[in-house]
Design a protein around this nucleic acid. Structure first.
Lengths: 238, 238
DNA sequence: GGGCTATTTCCTGTCGACAATATGTGCAAT
DNA sequence: ATTGCACATATTGTCGACAGGAAATAGCCC
């Protein structure tokens, strides 16, 4: 890399936007796995990259740390949070529960006009699947479920669920990396069923669909992990 | 206040402990309602109080902001987060759900030695009730339920639940302020029942007790709010 | 040559200062 | 008296610099 690499933004940014933009960019890169888990995040290097002082960088890292996306090693450095496969079963439990609670809640409060946002997200999801764009699909999936959670109208659930879904984005990214373009049309159909059940205000059916949807995802990822861990380890590489 | 008020700590603190201690102290004061909701938190004044520069103060405030305990008004100041009574119903929903999930989970994984921590917390809770110490009781109650959540072994639930319980501490503080020393022995008994059900690994009974316990708390606080809002407002005070 | 210790180096934690912005205040005009 | 604008003030957002710790390196003793 050249010595005087121009910073990411040379236009003088507005006051207060520094932390925000760094946070948003790093967050996106972490979730997209552009920044691999465990990668060191050097404050000085980041400040050079973004063309600002270390202070806004530090604040962005602090926010990421609160989100659980990075780990701060005191007096040493900050690294991208690693993915702990041991805690996947609890993760799936929590995810399933939130799928259920938010879908049930949405079914209880569904109104015709409130379905618009959800349908829009579903359309984006379907488009991403059709375009074989795994990244866009994962993002649209998150937005779809968050939209349902917002309809349910409990901000505690929405916040917690959004966090779980974000954490899951990295795992899904690992998962879909293995079969790049064969994205599951099945999820699109399941989403459609959920929309129908919510719109019909059928709470119990929504609940069953949420469970089914969650089980689907959990099973697929567990299969992937089992397959992956079953593969012979290349001892020579160490 | 004197001009050269000595700072809270004059001993030179160890590197990295600045942010941590400020965070801990402010957090405690906010949860104990020593710092009233809406109180302004001035960085300069805090830096004078704690005898350190604004930087560690800012980082502590940032962490509190991530916890939802303070609200940052951009380019203006930071205030202690207000209590939004409108969002109490969703809060109670979430709290009840987490009571249930963690108690069920604990009942599924109960082992004789794992009950020790829970019993210890319950003893502290009972002692606080006997001593008519509302603050200690609220804190012990939180620790009791977090201990159950930890036995359940799902860190996602534990984290979320702990956050909910913390947020509830301020509401409970409002509540118990009204009848200072008449602390409900009833909760002690309910806790005992829960311990027994968990130890017996009776999941369904644990669940029922969790629901009952949650309903109890919700009802009492709702009564309190209804009573409070029903009281005539002293217009002269404005 | 190997293990222990001193030194160096890199990076973070903290500091004081400056710049930008929002609120409050005073004045003038209607 | 009230509204609008300019100014003053207070508080945050950002910066560059320095100091303290931990890992990496070099030196020393065996």
């Amino acid at each position: 890399m050249a010595k005087n690499e121009p910073a990411e933004t040379d236009i003088p940014r507005t006051r207060g936007s520094g932390t925000q933009s760094v946070y948003t960019i790093l967050r996106r890169e972490i979730l997209a796995m552009t920044l691999a888990p465990g990668s060191p995040l050097d404050e000085v290097r980041l400040s050079e990259r973004f063309g600002m002082s270390r202070t806004p960088i530090r604040e962005a890292l602090l926010r990421l740390s609160a989100d659980g996306l990075v780990t701060t090693l005191p007096n040493r450095n900050t690294i991208v949070a690693t993915i702990d496969f041991a805690s996947l079963p609890p993760y799936f439990d929590a995810l399933t529960l939130m799928y259920r609670v938010t879908t049930r809640g949405a079914a209880m409060r569904a109104t015709p006009q409130a379905m618009g946002e959800i349908r829009k997200r579903q359309a984006e999801f379907a488009a991403a699947v059709a375009a074989h764009d795994a990244f866009a699909m994962i993002e649209a999936n998150r937005e779809f479920h968050v939209a349902i959670a917002e309809l349910a109208g409990n901000s505690y659930y929405t916040t917690f669920f959004a966090r779980l879904l974000d954490e899951g984005r990295r795992i899904l990214r690992l998962y879909y990396r293995t079969f790049d373009d064969r994205l599951p049309r099945q999820y699109v159909d399941e989403h459609e069923e959920m929309i129908a059940a919510i719109e019909a205000r059928d709470v119990e059916r929504s609940d069953r669909l949420a469970i089914k949807h969650a089980e689907q995802i959990v099973r697929q990822i567990q299969d992937y992990i089992a397959r992956d861990l079953g593969q012979p380890i290349d001892l020579a590489a160490s």
